[in-house]
């Protein structure tokens, strides 16, 4: 999320929210541990990004260089790796197509949320960000509840109104995978994979600004077979 947050900050002032694609993919094991994969795909705006990166500043704001972005990514990875309950953090950065992939293992969704909140707060100049009080993941062994972190919604809403048309072209995909079949889920926009082990919801940043609950979903799993 933090990576998204950072890039959103960069690209909101660049007017590049247009063709951003985000995949937020959580695989949850029966014991509550799991893996988060977070992918940001800006490949359809690479001409614009390259042209902007060629500038020193834009609209009075400094344009970060690729080494600076790499530095931020390394810093983020280091900070996230140090958090309790988080392991195997990897970040793949493709500065040719502008695709960034974060992956990490977590011992519980609580540990994941706390780790992300801590890192966001450490990286942010703002202190006591109220949006970080919000929990967007919960798991009780049979029910997984997901929403969108309020900080993401807040930042998405800050995108300028003239970029609305462009925002409609973006994609936000939320996938939740399990070790056992899904019995039912609340969100009617969600779809179930054929093997019944994964639930996916797709939307775009514009829809998200209009309805921040659009990705909210409670997913009920079938009982564990002994």
């Amino acid at each position: 999320m933090k990576l998204f947050y950072s890039f959103l900050l960069i690209f909101s002032f660049l007017g590049l929210t247009s063709c951003i694609e985000i995949i937020d993919d959580i695989s949850l094991k029966n014991d509550g541990s799991g893996t988060l994969k977070y992918t940001i795909n800006l490949s359809s705006s690479k001409v614009k990004i390259n042209s902007i990166l060629a500038l020193d500043s834009l609209d009075g704001k400094k344009v970060p260089s690729i080494p600076e972005m790499e530095e931020r990514i390394v810093s983020f990875k280091k900070k996230l790796s140090a958090k309790t309950g988080i392991s195997n953090v990897t970040i793949e950065s493709d500065f040719t197509n502008y695709i960034f992939k974060l992956q990490c293992d977590f011992t519980s969704v609580i540990a994941l949320q706390n780790a992300l909140k801590d890192v966001i707060e450490e990286e942010s100049k703002e202190k006591n960000i109220p949006e970080l009080d919000h929990n967007w993941l919960s798991w009780d062994g049979t029910k997984m509840t997901r929403s969108i972190p309020e900080i993401t919604v807040k930042k998405t809403k800050e995108i300028k109104s003239e970029d609305i048309e462009l925002m409609k072209q973006g994609n936000y995909t939320s996938i939740t995978r399990f070790e056992r079949p899904v019995e039912k889920f609340d969100n009617t926009a969600a779809v179930l994979s054929k093997n019944k082990m994964a639930v996916m919801i797709k939307t775009n940043p514009y829809a998200l600004t209009q309805n921040s609950n659009i990705l909210e979903n409670s997913i009920y799993l079938s009982p564990i077979k002994n």
């Binding site: 001409v47 197509n97 994964a198």
Partner: peptide
Amino acid sequence: KIKTTKIEFIYDENTFEYYE
């Protein structure tokens, strides 16, 4: 409009696994 390329993620309907 100039021709360029982009990366799309293609999803497998069975598992929702994806590839570039």
